[in-house]
Design a protein around this nucleic acid. Structure first.
Length: 275
DNA sequence: AGACACCCCTGAGAGC
DNA sequence: TGCTCTCAGGGGTGTC
């Protein structure tokens, strides 16, 4: 499900209600998500601690706690964080429940269980989840520039879309926005990354920023099951120009939108507009 | 090193 | 109605 804009929307929602609250207890209703849940480590790291901040890194949400502890939440394909009154009935796929002061309940719901929850020490990089250590620059920050993209792509034969999906290149771009931003940048997803000119890399960076910012404004994308902390769906799906539109007319040129598969993931593009 | 295929899991929708 | 098949926003692992 969630890419950067969805994670950002969730992080903002959590921040608003969670900062200053105390984690009272953590319970799990399944033994594992993507990996076995280390409930003991989660509890030792978080129970009794106060929420200091809620941040986002790429597609992941980081709940910062007192004592420099933190919880990393990776949403996977179908993960969602919901905040509700503690007495509210549990849903079938509410897998991990955080009891929070003020009679609140933070619930991690995840139909496909591709998500991950990990506890770590913020000021000890050695304790960080591997995923965090290797994550590329934030696409909305200065580190992600045309020059950066140009540099890391030299001699790379990988398709540009595949490279953008790799979280080590840049953090937070997922399958939907990868198609959308390449459409807006007029670049074919199958182009060898190493053959892109500096000006094209700049265009990609510019359109990445634009599309992500627009999506954050709209509260994320809803394909089927994305929800914000309050259960509200995002509205960006109404703004998608290319994703999921195979066989339909390109809004820019009227040409027919194509669907291809790259490393097992669907890609959509306009063969006329994108070179 | 880097580029893939495959796997984890449930549910929705299409087609028969 | 109910079966079977395909597909789905992520990312870790193993193999060539």
């Amino acid at each position: 499900m969630p890419e950067l804009p969805e994670a950002e929307t969730i992080a903002r929602g959590l921040r608003r209600y969670l900062v200053g609250k105390k984690i009272l207890q953590i319970t799990a209703r399944v033994p594992s998500l993507r990996r076995p849940l280390n409930l003991i480590k989660l509890r030792t790291g978080a129970v009794g601690k106060k929420v200091v901040a809620v941040n986002r890194r790429g597609k992941a949400i980081i709940i910062e706690l007192s004592g420099k502890r933190a919880i990393l939440i990776q949403l996977g394909m179908t993960g969602a964080c919901k905040l509700c009154p503690e007495q509210e009935a549990l849903n079938k796929h509410d897998h991990v429940i955080f009891a929070v002061s003020g009679k609140l309940s933070l619930r991690f719901e995840d139909i496909r269980r591709f998500g991950m929850l990990e506890s770590f020490q913020l000021d000890e990089e050695a304790s960080w989840p591997e995923f965090l250590k290797t994550l590329g620059p934030e696409p909305l920050e200065k580190g992600f520039s045309g020059e950066y993209l140009h540099t890391i792509t030299r001699k790379r034969k990988t398709a540009i879309k595949t490279l953008l999906l790799n979280q080590r290149s840049v953090a937070g771009i997922g399958n939907i926005y990868a198609s959308e931003l390449l459409f807006r940048a007029h670049i074919r997803p199958g182009r060898a990354a190493g053959r892109l000119k500096l000006a094209e890399c700049e265009k990609i960076v510019e359109q990445t920023r634009k599309v992500l910012k627009e999506a954050i404004k709209a509260g994320g994308t809803t394909i089927s099951d994305y929800k914000g902390v309050d259960g509200n769906a995002g509205k960006f799906d109404r703004k998608l120009r290319i994703y999921g539109k195979a066989g339909k007319a390109c809004e820019a040129c009227g040409g027919t939108i194509k669907r291809i598969v790259q490393t097992g993931r669907a890609t959509f593009y306009c063969p006329v507009c994108q070179k």
